[in-house]
């Protein structure tokens, strides 16, 4: 139950790390005047040909970029928003030619699907959900889960898109009696879904039946944890969490990610590994992304740090570039590249 049992990953010093494992392959300049907020990669099909495209989001503009030869990019579609700004891109795996965005000021007020008309290739946007939305995640098999409402009338809704991004089915999941903060898929178990809550619980649903299967209390050391990845092995559930609210601790530095193991039958759990900032690296976790066995995080210092979750330590640091701090980082879903963004609209693509 206690992080005292948690192994702290080896802490290499800043001096021993460099950007050697990161190779800059491309740069994309988004000239839209507003503040850049997110980036993602997805497959888009045009004239029967599927291409790995980049999606960039500024406060009021979302753009789709197609690859040209020699790592250049051409903007092919742009969606505009007038009243409510974009907060984040919500990629929906296994769907081609459709991406979702969450809009709002501090909290999400709308989720919209962005697509193109098959008739005249013009940009279209469809309002999928509005209200007081707390959390949203795109899931494999063309699904999107969201939670909305306040504690007493909280709704957890699962939408399933058709292959062409059209007609969708809706299903409701049993809400827990506490506010959901984030959702997380369980790798290889498409009927299982995890959620983290404001009461420091991890809940698990059966997506086929909508049942809430278990509520599992995790260590109170870190509040408001974000679930990034989970997998089940030998009857145990391994979960990678990040801790945006973790305070810096002198001895350990600031933990960015943590691996915990849960026995879903008994709800008993313990910390396995803390992934802390390298020694000498100031600041704490701001936001991050996990794919396969690598985790990337933007730190409050404006630097990006990368951890190999199997090796157990930080493998690369990417300091601010062009005198600009990094503000968001994503792993590309179409290849193994790292997409790093700055507020002014510069997106740098690195091979890791």
């Amino acid at each position: 139950h206690s992080t005292e049992q948690t192994k702290v990953a080896d802490l290499p010093t800043c001096d021993s790390l460099n950007t050697g494992s990161l190779q800059l392959v491309s740069k994309l300049k988004n000239p839209s005047g507003s503040c850049s907020v997110d980036v993602s990669a997805m497959w888009w099909e045009r004239a029967g040909f599927k291409e790995p495209c980049i999606i960039t989001a500024c406060e009021y503009v979302v753009s789709l970029w197609k690859p040209l030869d020699t790592w250049q990019w051409e903007k092919i579609y742009t969606w505009h928003f007038i009243e409510v700004p974009v907060l984040q891109i919500v990629p929906v795996p296994d769907v081609c030619n459709l991406v979702c965005v969450a809009l709002g000021s501090l909290e999400i007020r709308e989720i919209r699907a962005l697509l193109c008309s098959s008739d005249d290739e013009s940009e279209k946007q469809v309002l999928l959900k509005s209200g007081n939305i707390k959390a949203v995640l795109g899931l494999t098999k063309r699904r999107l889960v969201s939670s909305s409402g306040t504690l007493c009338d909280q709704q957890v809704e699962l939408m399933t898109f058709a292959e062409d991004g059209g007609n969708k089915e809706k299903q409701f999941l049993m809400p827990p009696e506490e506010t959901i903060l984030t959702f997380g898929e369980v790798q290889g178990m498409q009927d299982a879904l995890l959620g983290t809550t404001t009461m420091n619980n991890i809940v698990i649903w059966n997506l086929k039946t909508g049942q809430l299967l278990k509520k599992m209390h995790i260590d109170d050391s870190y509040q408001a944890s974000v679930c990034h990845k989970a997998y089940s092995e030998m009857g145990l559930l391994f979960v990678i969490l990040s801790h945006p609210c973790a305070k810096e601790r002198e001895a350990l530095g600031s933990p960015a990610f943590q691996l915990i193991v849960i026995n879903p039958k008994t709800a008993l759990n313990m910390g396995v590994m803390l992934y802390c900032l390298p020694q000498g690296q100031a600041g704490r976790f701001l936001e991050g992304d996990v794919r396969d066995h690598v985790a990337a995080a933007v730190l409050t210092s404006g630097t990006i740090a990368i951890w190999d979750l199997l090796l157990g330590h930080c493998t690369a640091l990417l300091p601010p570039t062009s005198d600009q701090n990094w503000s968001f980082v994503k792993w590309s879903g179409t290849d193994s590249h790292l997409l790093a963004g700055q507020k002014d609209g510069n997106i740098f693509i690195y091979r890791y």
Partner: peptide, 22 residues
């Protein structure tokens, strides 16, 4: 130790789903 996590079941998802139906 993992023993502190109690009895483990490889079919935990199916078992929890059946228990939730009861």
């Amino acid at each position: 130790s993992l023993k502190d996590l109690g009895p483990i079941s490889l079919n935990w998802f199916e078992e929890l789903s059946s228990e939730a139906l009861l």
